[in-house]
């Protein structure tokens, strides 16, 4: 069954139509990339899906349920997790504490004032797993605000992952990263997708990353969908070349 269906979604900011009647369906296990020039409306599109903004018109259907009007936290509870274009973490807490909060919330402990020894042990173990997976082990007890940009972004991705999402939305995961960091994050995303069969939608400017990872690509330009298809189809699409790839190269 289709995991995410966006139906004809639009978002207006005053006169500006940031997202203009965009539809998209994402199947379970798919890795979808959303690309487009600056200001194309990619982040706004993500905001509609995740509930940061409500669409001016159109519907968001997640796992068969209309979630268009649901608050962000409720979409998270149903299995949607996201990261942001500008890193959003808890800077004055350590990486371990950042992940611990995410794990506790995901385990349904957020209102608890006490954890049993077993529950506490499970939470700690899960945090260590996530640290291992991301290569943050050495830096686990440093404040996230003092870590390198790439490590902060990795922390944010691991926090989203701690929620055990069924759909992971990543807004430019490699933004502002060097080659090494970009490679590491790309490998991490690839691993999550291949090994855990996680469904991922990501916005990305780095075409190497996009063509390396994506099963299918959607191209936005000036709020509207310009093209949609496999990486080969998109690479061969002339409209895309003139609107985007040509300019970027």
């Amino acid at each position: 069954m289709t995991l995410l269906r966006v139906e004809n979604a639009s978002k207006k900011f005053g006169d500006l139509v940031a997202v203009d009647g965009v539809s998209m369906t994402v199947e379970p296990g798919e890795l979808r990339a959303v690309i487009g020039p600056n200001g194309a409306g990619k982040t706004t599109f993500f905001n509609l899906i995740s509930g940061f903004l409500t669409p001016s018109s159109g519907r968001i259907v997640f796992d068969g349920e209309d979630v268009t009007k649901l608050l962000p936290a409720r979409r998270v509870w149903r299995g949607m997790a996201r990261t942001f274009q500008i890193t959003e973490v808890f800077p004055e807490l350590t990486a371990r504490e950042n992940l611990r909060i995410a794990v506790e919330v995901a385990s349904g402990y957020r209102l608890k004032t006490w954890l049993s020894r077993d529950a506490d042990g499970e939470v700690r173990a899960r945090v260590v797993d996530l640290l291992d997976m991301s290569g943050l082990v050495d830096k686990a007890d440093r404040l996230v605000g003092e870590l390198a940009h790439g490590d902060q972004r990795a922390t944010e991705i691991m926090m989203a992952l701690a929620l055990r999402p069924r759909l992971l939305l990543l807004d430019e995961p490699t933004a502002g990263m060097g080659d090494k960091e970009t490679y590491d994050i790309t490998q991490l995303i690839r691993k999550l997708h291949k090994n855990q069969n996680l469904t991922i939608v990501l916005i990305e400017h780095d075409m190497r990353v996009v063509f390396h990872l994506a099963d299918r690509i959607m191209v936005l330009a000036e709020g509207a969908m310009l093209a949609e298809g496999t990486p080969q189809e998109i690479a061969a699409n002339e409209a895309v070349q003139t609107a985007y790839l040509g300019k970027a190269a």
């Binding site: 995740s50 940061f52 962000p72 936290a73 998270v76 509870w77 997790a81 996201r82 942001f84 959003e88 973490v89 808890f90 800077p91 004055e92 807490l93 504490e97 611990r100 909060i101 995410a102 506790e104 919330v105 995901a106 957020r110 944010e156 926090m159 929620l163």
Partner: peptide, 18 residues
């Protein structure tokens, strides 16, 4: 710890499902 999360970054806290 959810209190600290809200203090540190309300947006992140909200999108963790708090």
């Amino acid at each position: 710890r959810t209190m600290l999360a809200i203090r540190e970054n309300e947006r992140r806290a909200r999108f963790l499902g708090i």
